[in-house]
Design a protein around this nucleic acid. Structure first.
Lengths: 261, 261
DNA sequence: CATGATACAATCAAAAACATTCAATTGTCA
DNA sequence: TGACAATTGAATGTTTTTGATTGTATCATG
């Protein structure tokens, strides 16, 4: 047992990390010093931001002081989107390189992939992908550069295309704001449309579109691609019903993700 | 048992690596020399950056050659870093385009800029910049593309350089893991060093380095640039004391950020 | 809301560790 | 052998750490 401050503090840190909290009196007994000394140790550790001081002891430091709180507003239909997400995730195999653009539906795909943690490469412009993949050891995450847009939590523009043009993927997961037989895939932001189009152009395999029911039949401002270039549409139960009454290209297959699985 | 200094110091290093901390008195007994000799050994090892000196002994040095475990390191010395952050932020003016690389110190700069919310453009590879700037209406945030590294919360590599080469900035805020008169600025990750160097090459104005005291005098694995290319070093009180005893280039000015403002 | 118990902050004196200086020892090279 | 540098340990005063003491703040009960 070290008798110097540094050794004591290291010991305290270990205990806090293992047990979550420690008390001054326990530590004083265990380390055979006065409680006053323990208090001074804890105060020092707290001033370095390594522990959080409490009355009578200390606790583990809460993660980051400011945690990103995006997910809330993005989750409008959480169960439906999660179902779509895991349905799409099941189509991605080990070794794949996948383009995934921005949007709450595609974020659900990233989250599903993150929990499965397969050895894949994700190329995305969705800024939320960072925290979604924070515990996925096997996922290689490549981020497009570009100008950040707060509203969509994503980057886009010519700088993004610069990066995308360097990378060929064998699958693309594309979220849209409008899915229509006549207008094709559409989004309300020009740069987003350009970035999405660049992704699809660099994809040699399946182009998978994810769209919940409230996007089906909708036409937004800017067109990315037509439905002819899409291989699969993954939607929810209600979306499937709407699509079944539409005229869609022959090569486009529809997958309905059921929430009760 | 070797009786020459080198052998003793080797032995000390082994013990520190195995046990985390060592005490002067233990080592003196074990190696059968006076405590004074042990202290001299530890001081030498510390000046080479191999151990961290403490009262009564020494501890493992965490900042050298080891990729930092981000969440742990992120908020060490929060007040000092916040002081450095706001000091640097005051040097950025409306209309500036600023390169900011990754690291906990530079994140503090971004946070300070985010609260001031001036009309500036930030170009960064730090993934935490997204949530840091989430309420800053006037800041234009451009993100470098590239491969994401979880440990440092940043992207780097050739894809980042691709984006950086398109953008000229008039200021650069650079965080480092090592600041040394002889070795210059150094970091433990090759790609980070390359990305940082690319940023500096694209900067026509002031290059501002931020480094807390525990980085001063430290040499890490990969060199980014020499001190001759740095215009300003912003550090904390303790760091200022250390730098004042170093030989630094004439063109490099030192700014000390005080916490008691 | 009062009250005892506990934890805390502030101050001070003793002990430990430290920096500094100087002399003694060792090893090396001319 | 003798000069020289490197290394080591002793002696000095200084700084840091520690625990005792005192009074104050906070907590958990009735």
């Amino acid at each position: 047992m070290s008798t110097i401050p540094a050794g004591r503090q290291q010991h305290i840190l270990l205990r806090i990390r293992r047990e979550g909290t420690v008390t001054v009196s326990d530590l004083a007994l265990e380390l055979e010093v006065s409680e006053l000394t323990i208090r001074r140790d804890l105060d020092q550790l707290a001033s370095r931001g390594l522990v959080e001081r409490t009355h009578g002891g200390a606790t583990e430091r809460r993660t980051l002081a400011v945690e990103p709180d995006y997910p809330q507003k993005a989750q409008e239909y959480p169960t439906e989107k999660a179902a779509i997400g895991s349905r799409v995730a099941s189509m991605i195999e080990e070794g794949d390189t996948v383009y995934i653009n921005s949007g709450s539906s595609t974020l659900a795909v990233i989250q599903a992939l993150a929990t499965e943690d397969k050895a894949i490469t994700i190329v995305t412009n969705n800024a939320d992908a960072f925290w979604a993949c924070k515990e996925s050891e096997n996922i290689r995450l490549i981020f497009c550069g570009g100008v950040y847009r707060q509203r969509s939590h994503s980057v886009s523009g010519s700088l993004s295309a610069l990066v995308i043009n360097q990378i060929n993927a064998n699958k693309a997961v594309i979220g849209v704001d409008g899915f229509s037989p006549s207008a094709g895939l559409t989004t309300p932001i020009l740069e987003e449309a350009e970035t999405t189009r660049a992704m699809i152009e660099q994809t040699v395999g399946a182009v998978i579109v994810v769209a919940a029911a409230n996007k089906i039949g909708v036409v937004s401002n800017y067109r990315t691609i037509g439905l002819e270039e899409v291989d699969v549409l993954v939607t929810d139960q209600e979306g499937g019903d709407i699509v079944s009454q539409m005229e869609i290209p022959a090569g486009l297959s529809i997958l309905v993700a059921t929430t009760t699985q």
